[in-house]
Design a protein around this nucleic acid. Structure first.
Length: 837
RNA sequence: GCCCUCGUGGUGAAAUUGGUAGACACAAAGGACUUAAAAUCCUUGCCCUUUUGGGAGUGCCAGUUCGAGUCUGGCCGAGGGCACCA
């Protein structure tokens, strides 16, 4: 068998891919913006990147071959904490560390043979990038989209920085895993909540997004309908404003619960008991166990509120640990009969339980009834159902002027301040008179200083001897700079716009280019960004449209694909230490030995590759050993791309074997002597290949790359049979050329090498599918009473009578029909015939 | 607790959306070629039958249908999202 030295040909073709551009500028070309989520330059690429970028490359090359004008850029999400951490431990500047990683990873990506236009490369830590980000910040500021709030923040005591809510997982920092503390700080916010409604309703426009992702965003935005109701206190003049989604249960209200941060708490500032209670509440709150067990506790204020609809009725007021200050008004009314939480609370403090929605049961409630039903015990609401009662009571509340209809969102404004060095400086200055203003745009970029000390705790910008001190350009007044930097999610919220004109100097982007290339036609990345990155990018796009009349885009990503993770089994030695795959030797399915001392190893189930579990495989080593094409091929072959895939050395090695067979096939065809043509064989091969083209085209369009690859195997098995038949050299070559063109998106090096060997002249054009020349024969099932008794291989489009006579003459099913009366026949053309006897 | 998704051979998975279940591949067993190995190729794959055949079968239980992996209801199991959101 003829073998191919993939290292040689991959090098050869990568030279050509270096300056590869997928631009088709012919008048009938449509644009296609193919984007994969850009990587954080952490050191080396990992298998997740290989999968992500291979999928993107297939799409980009496929679209290009189909005459699209394709934008396929790549860049670096280059600001972030790891650079600072690495700098601390290696005594290296974060900038140099990042730059070095970018060089390594770029080379690795090039070794995969990706079709990227590297002339568009950007790095978010480059001042030419963050300069424009600072401009955008100022634009947002001037358009009322930035605010400064003093709030409690999630303080990570290990990282010494503020975390976004989304970066807190089960009460712990997402990176450090340290228990997060509450701390009050002045912070910058993007007013993402101004767009709550828009972000929610526009989800409907995103037909090309996975339903799952849209649902997650919907839940995150969390819209709820209800109303506010004012409760008068019986002893005071002040009022308590509550929010409820169940105003229909107002007649079942038996207590009011307030957050410990509610304004009314000021009355209790000197009460030791209250302070104790407040401390108790703060203790629970963030740790995982406390949330799980979450006992409801309250503090009786001994105050009462007047029921707004029942004269004389007084309702006790409590502070309670389960009421949050930052949702609604930090106050609720409790209706124990129809809310489980209120029910638990009422049982604990012996409060009244009044049923106002009938559950059709006589006995006392054992738990809250939250279903629909007929309203009872509620005066003018009686006999209505829940939905109608809600409407009626809101009308009544508004009529009496004691409250109003209201819609609430869970989504909170986006805190963007970070007390870190390696990020985009916030272009704000503080004047001596206390005013806070953005810097003049002419001063941008506000550059990060490079002479910093990373080994002192806290933010190096704060402690830099001079950086902070500046003057306001327009007035010459003394000022100090904001020392916080922007959350790195800001960097990735508009990079897809910068790619459209990465070298544009005057502005963040050239609107003409944006309005041509945007929106991204296909965005590809990990599901872990389902909420944060995608929601922030959507917000940015909408905010920009508000700030800039020439900007016409309202949603950034037309189609979204979220690929699954790459998994590998894990290994632990006898002492429970993780081992790398190269440290062990497998001895069967679930047995392994440590190479060094032959001790036995515990083989764990496949889990997503991570450095901490040491179950990683280095893509670069695999590429060296099996070739980039084989690695790409395997990545796509084993599982549907949206599902997790398990890495297997055997899998990649057999991918390599198959590609060698493909090469051998090309070699044989290229060197084959002319044979006498046989019409039937030639017709068969033309129809067969044409049918495969059709199948593969369909599978690519549906992102079913694993099916696609199965089709290639089938096609190979089909095609090689014709090598020894009477098919002319030309027919064989023409058809193999078509097949190799189909392989370009998957294994570009091999495909181009083979096309060169076959002397193909039009390599950058997808083969046309001749729909009239698809397979003429089909397989049809013959069933008796729903049981398949025979499978006929027959001509397409035969009618029932013709089928009947074939069966009567020769089918295996014939004997089941002898001497039987057919009651009914179900006939589906080209699929099935079913006789009921 | 609430919400969502998914259960198909020893394994990864296909199944034109209600019409041949297990394509394609991996692994395994047997065989061919070879002095031998590697490579390559072929066969097998649950139950009964020597074969021809026949039967069961897509997590479990029902239902709709001529026909269900696919639709409906209930149960069991796995994974993911949210977290006291009023």
């Amino acid at each position: 068998m003829e073998r191919l030295n993939f290292q040689v040909i991959e090098k050869k073709w990568q030279e050509k891919f270096k300056s590869l551009k997928l631009y088709n500028n012919s008048p009938d070309s449509k644009k296609f913006y193919c984007l994969e989520m850009f990587p954080y330059p952490s050191g080396k690429i990992h298998m997740g990147h290989v999968r992500n970028y291979t999928i993107g490359d297939v799409i980009a090359r496929y679209k290009f071959l189909n005459n699209y004008n394709v934008l396929h850029p790549m860049g670096w999400d280059a600001f972030g904490l790891p650079a600072e951490n690495a700098a601390k431990s290696n005594k290296e500047n974060p900038k140099d560390w990042t730059k070095k990683n970018i060089e390594v990873m770029k080379k690795q990506l090039q070794q995969l043979g990706l079709s990227i236009d590297w002339d568009l490369e950007i790095a978010t830590c480059d001042k030419n990038y963050y300069k424009h980000q600072q401009e955008l910040f100022i634009d947002f500021y001037n358009n009322g989209l930035v605010s400064r709030k003093e709030t409690y923040v999630n303080w990570d005591p290990v990282e010494k920085t503020v975390l976004a809510n989304e970066q807190v997982i089960d009460g712990r920092g997402w990176r450090s895993n340290a228990v997060v503390e509450r701390k009050k700080l002045s912070q910058w916010f993007f007013n993402i909540t101004k767009f709550s409604n828009n972000l929610l309703s526009d989800l409907e426009k995103l037909g090309g997004w996975p339903e799952k992702v849209k649902l997650m965003q919907k839940n995150w935005i969390g819209k709820s309908f209800g109303c506010e109701i004012k409760f008068e206190l019986s002893s005071e003049t002040s009022k308590i404003n509550i929010f409820t989604t169940r105003p229909d249960t107002i007649f079942g209200a038996t207590f009011i619960a307030l957050s410990v941060d509610h304004p009314l708490s000021k009355k209790f500032i000197n009460s030791n008991e209250f302070q104790e209670f407040k401390n108790e509440c703060n203790k629970t709150g963030t740790t995982e166990e406390s949330l799980a067990n979450a006992e409801k506790i309250g503090f009786d204020t001994k105050l009462f509120a007047k029921h707004p609809f029942i004269k004389e009725k007084k309702i006790p007021i409590f502070f309670a640990n389960f009421v949050l200050m930052d949702y609604g008004n930090g106050a609720i009314f409790g209706c124990p009969a129809h809310d489980q939480r209120d029910f638990d609370f009422a049982k604990k403090y012996n409060l009244e339980v009044i049923k106002v929605v009938s559950d059709k049961q006589e006995e006392e409630l054992k738990e809250a009834y939250t279903g629909d039903g007929v309203i009872i015990n509620s005066e003018f609401l009686n006999n209505l159902n829940v939905e109608n009662a809600k409407e009626k009571i809101i009308e009544e509340i508004e009529k009496r002027g004691i409250g109003k209809r209201k819609t609430l969102f869970r989504l909170k404004d986006w805190g963007i301040s970070r007390q870190r060095y390696w990020g985009c400086p916030i272009p704000i200055i503080y004047l001596e008179d206390g005013s806070i203003v953005p810097v003049d745009k002419s001063e941008l970029p506000i550059e990060l200083p490079e002479d910093i000390n990373l080994n002192s705790p806290g933010n190096p910008l704060e402690y830099h001897p001079t950086w902070k001190n500046t003057i306001q350009r327009s007035t010459g007044k003394k000022a100090t700079r904001e020392t916080d930097t922007l959350d790195t999610f800001v960097d990735s919220s508009w990079y897809f716009l910068r790619f459209c004109s990465p070298n544009f100097k005057q502005k963040p982007f050239d609107e003409k280019k944006i309005n041509y290339w945007m929106p991204v036609d296909q965005y590809i990345g990990g599901i872990e960004h389902a909420i944060l990155h995608l929601l922030y990018s959507r917000f940015f796009t909408k905010a920009l449209k508000d700030c800039n009349k020439e900007f016409k885009i309202s949603e950034p990503f037309q189609n979204l694909f979220t690929q699954g993770m790459v998994c590998h089994e894990t290994y632990k030695d006898q002492n429970g230490n993780w081992l790398y795959p190269e440290e062990i030797e497998k001895e069967g399915l679930n047995k392994a030995k440590k190479k060094s001392d032959k001790s036995s190893v515990v083989v764990g189930p496949p889990e997503s590759m991570s450095k901490s579990k040491k179950n990683t495989i280095d893509p670069e080593i695999m590429v060296k050993q099996y070739g980039a094409d084989a690695v790409r091929w395997f990545m796509l072959s084993d599982s549907p791309p949206e599902k997790d895939v398990q890495w297997s050395d055997i899998g990649v090695s057999s991918a390599n074997k198959f590609l060698q067979k493909i090469w051998n096939l090309n070699y044989l065809v290229a060197n084959r002597k002319v044979k006498k043509p046989n019409n039937q064989d030639e017709k068969d091969i033309i129809q067969g290949v044409n049918s495969f083209l059709n199948k593969i085209d369909l599978s690519i369009n549906n992102f079913r790359f694993n099916v696609c690859i199965a089709n290639f195997y089938e096609m190979y098995n089909f095609f090689r049979k014709y090598l020894d038949t009477n098919v002319s050299e030309k027919i064989l070559k023409d058809n193999l050329t078509k097949i190799m063109k189909l392989m370009i998106p998957f294994t570009p090096h091999l495909a181009y090498e083979c096309l060169e060997l076959l002397d193909c002249k039009s390599i950058n054009k997808w083969p046309e599918i001749d729909k009239k020349n698809l397979k003429e024969e089909i397989k049809m099932a013959v069933q008796i009473n729903g049981k398949t008794r025979d499978i006929l291989t027959i001509k397409k489009d035969l009618v029932e009578n013709e089928i009947n006579s074939i069966i009567q003459n020769s089918s295996k099913a014939k004997k089941f029909l002898e001497n039987k009366k057919v009651v009914k026949t179900i006939f589906v053309k080209n699929k099935i015939i079913n006789y009921i006897i």
